[in-house]
Design a protein around this nucleic acid. Structure first.
Lengths: 223, 223
DNA sequence: ACAAAAGTGTTAAGAATACACCCATGT
DNA sequence: ACATGGGTGTATTCTTAACACTTTTGT
């Protein structure tokens, strides 16, 4: 016990946001070796005394300017990646978090060029971050179908079309408009706000809001 | 970076098994302080150079006699628990694994009285292990409905009644026999083996086997 | 009047639920 | 013959899936 040496403990954030109706993920350019100049997920060391969430919050603030409390609607633990050789400097485990928001503003002090990339067109990535993003995306897709998690990626009010495009952006496929509306409506996932959005040379769109803006599960069946 | 001190890294196993048609979880009695004499999940330190899975495998072998490769059909990472105060000795994070098997034999070298307890009647537990078990159970319940994960908790062939009792044991509620059979059948989750089990003063039961004995997801809908 | 996006309904097939009796065997 | 668990069917309701036209507005 006295000679116990733990692996390095790191945290990484996979921060998703919709931009122009496409799903984007936040990356930054590494300032130092290893992988200097390459794109990577925001992350860093988790020292003793700090929870993983606290560590990630601190790191995101410094490296990207994101204030997790005010700008991320959801920040939930995803998975711990622990391949012994994932970091060339030596054994480091990474606790990955999924972060979602709808109007994330960037620009930190010690900023490392934080940039949102569309998930279907990512640059070459450092470490095993391609795997981590793939894992996070799959998780997000599952959650989108089974929960109200999309509240975290849309503004407080939105049109039905915006909602559908959000689903499509996350699922990376198209949905039938009429069936989609019926389904969402009888899940009682959203409600009308009474407002409309007039925009452009066409019929104005009703504005909706999520009924619940905290995590909520669509229940499973089984007699 | 040179003064970076990581938290202690530990791993814990939540090993479930069905015994007499009830869901049980493996606990052992702590040999040392803290919590000496109390019941706890099997677990221990994860040193640098060992993956979490390797560490847990090693620890389970020593403390419970379980050979993870041959006795656990599933051993999958669950969640990382990282409250700063969860260990009275100082900041220690625990990577928890869910383990499932159907004929787990106990008895290690340095054994600490490993015992399967029914999940609805657990003793007082050390650390935050009650929370961890609750988390694992909820996860298992979700998986049971959405995947074929129960293959890991049943022998290679079994009767339909055994299968239903397994579902009921995990979900902690009863299911309708006819509807259950219909549902399982048209999911094509299991197939007849052609064998029957003659046992007791009643009609013999057909024996079934899972179609897939590797993880498999029941797909979600969404037009 | 036209362009542009919003909004809406029906039918058919499949899945979920509620519910009770007959079947094959051992003693 | 009886006790024991194995095995089966139907009617109803709800959900899913496929599919195309009308409405409201700005220019």
């Amino acid at each position: 016990m006295s000679v116990y040496v733990p692996p390095t403990v790191t945290v990484d954030g996979i921060i998703f946001q919709l931009i122009s109706d496409k799903l984007h993920v936040l990356l930054l350019q590494r300032a130092r070796d290893p992988f200097k100049g390459e794109w990577a997920l925001p992350g860093g060391y988790n020292p003793r005394g700090e929870t993983t969430r606290q560590a990630l919050s601190r790191i995101l603030k410094v490296k990207t300017g994101i204030d997790t409390d005010s700008q991320l609607e959801i920040l939930e633990q995803l998975h711990t990646f622990d391949d012994v050789s994932r970091d060339p400097r030596g054994h480091a485990i990474a606790i990955a978090y999924l972060g979602l928001g709808y109007d994330i503003r960037l620009g930190g002090e010690e900023t490392q060029n934080p940039t949102f990339f569309p998930v279907d067109n990512l640059p070459k990535l450092a470490y095993d971050h391609d795997e981590i993003i793939a894992y996070a995306l799959k998780h997000l897709q599952t959650k989108v179908v089974q929960t109200n998690i999309l509240y975290a990626m849309l503004p407080p009010s939105f049109t039905f079309t915006q909602l559908q495009m959000a689903y499509e952006a996350v699922l990376l496929r198209t949905l039938d408009k009429r069936n989609f509306r019926k389904r969402i409506m009888n899940l009682e996932l959203i409600k009308e706000t009474g407002q409309v959005e007039k925009q452009g040379a066409h019929r104005p769109a009703k504005l909706f809001a999520f009924v619940h803006t905290t995590p909520w599960e669509i229940e499973d069946t089984l007699s």
